[in-house]
Design a protein around this nucleic acid. Structure first.
Length: 282
DNA sequence: CTGAAAACAATACTACACGT
DNA sequence: ACGTGTAGTATTGTTTTCAG
């Protein structure tokens, strides 16, 4: 039951212009970072990435297996990293405050305890910065299938059809939204229009978006990206469109959902075009 | 076991000075 | 300009304590 508890985060533009740069500053922009704090935080994020929802105790256990006394001390360290600390009246923020990690439910195994998992922003940051193998990403997709159902929930199906293109989510994690007007060069495919509409649709959500909406926004990006092709082959049907149709073929839910988005975009642009032509300016 | 906090030790980071 | 040393500060690590 993904349900955020008080954490707020923004849409993809907010990821690109605020979350990602801030996270790079605080937690490193590369897995080779030599700064101790960066290493510690990245290790923690990696544990959550591969293992999904955990308590701090679980996290320490994953890292130190059966060494109970090490687990005991490291558990406190993980907790501190997550929630920050206040020393001599001065507060230093933890990972929770940026929203890379969120609380997700409680474990009642012993006394009730908070469970933590990555937020969507956190997943993107990990894809961006940690040096993850495809195997790691596959494990993550299983753990986070409920958080990003339209992509991770259909991971193996998508892989069977579009192959390694599933890992292209890393492009988004680098902050490349592909909403750049140069894309218009490929005039047969309205890639620029669709990518732009993804931002138009969620333009009011820079500061605050529900996790479901953000998941949808990311998913729209993912499926729209399938339309992108390097070279224009001279086929009747555009290879990008072909790819998308192959995904739709055996998944009506995705088809319906994406076509609704497409129609919404179409409607939006025709209304805007009308507004321009009926303005009397020209 | 979880969670918060205090106290102090250790270390990492910064800016600046110095010599080359 | 460049690397190196270093003092002082800031941040992080460790241990302990206490309450559920």
């Amino acid at each position: 039951m993904p349900q955020d508890q008080g954490t707020r985060y923004g849409n993809l533009l907010s990821y690109k212009y605020y979350i990602r740069p801030t996270a790079h500053r605080l937690y490193g922009s590369s897995y080779t970072s030599k700064i101790k704090h960066h290493e510690n935080v990245q290790k923690l994020l990696q544990i959550l990435f591969i293992n999904g929802t955990c308590t701090t105790w679980d996290m320490a256990k994953i890292r130190f297996h059966n060494d109970i006394s090490t687990i005991r001390t490291k558990e406190k360290e993980f907790r501190r990293l997550l929630i920050g600390r206040t020393d001599r009246g001065k507060h230093s923020a933890g990972i929770l405050e940026l929203g890379l990690v969120v609380k997700d439910g409680k474990s009642y195994k012993k006394t009730p305890s908070d469970q933590y998992r990555l937020s969507l922003h956190g997943i993107l940051f990990c894809l961006d910065v940690l040096n993850l193998s495809n195997t790691d990403i596959d494990k993550m997709a299983i753990q986070y299938s409920a958080v990003l159902p339209k992509i991770f929930g259909k991971w193996e199906y998508l892989k069977s059809i579009i192959g390694d293109d599933v890992y292209k989510l890393q492009i988004l994690s680098k902050g490349l939204l592909l909403d750049n007007p140069n894309l218009i060069q490929d005039s047969k495919i309205p890639l620029y229009e669709l990518m732009s509409f993804i931002h138009i649709k969620y333009r009011r959500n820079f500061e605050s978006i529900s996790e479901d909406d953000l998941a949808n926004q990311i998913s729209y990006w993912f499926y729209t990206y399938l339309l992108y092709t390097r070279k224009q082959k001279k086929t009747k049907i555009h290879p990008g469109v072909q790819k998308l149709h192959r995904v739709f073929e055996r998944d009506e839910e995705i088809q319906k959902w994406f076509l609704e988005f497409f129609n919404e975009a179409q409607k939006y642009y025709s209304q805007r075009a009308n507004a321009l032509s009926s303005s009397g300016i020209a």
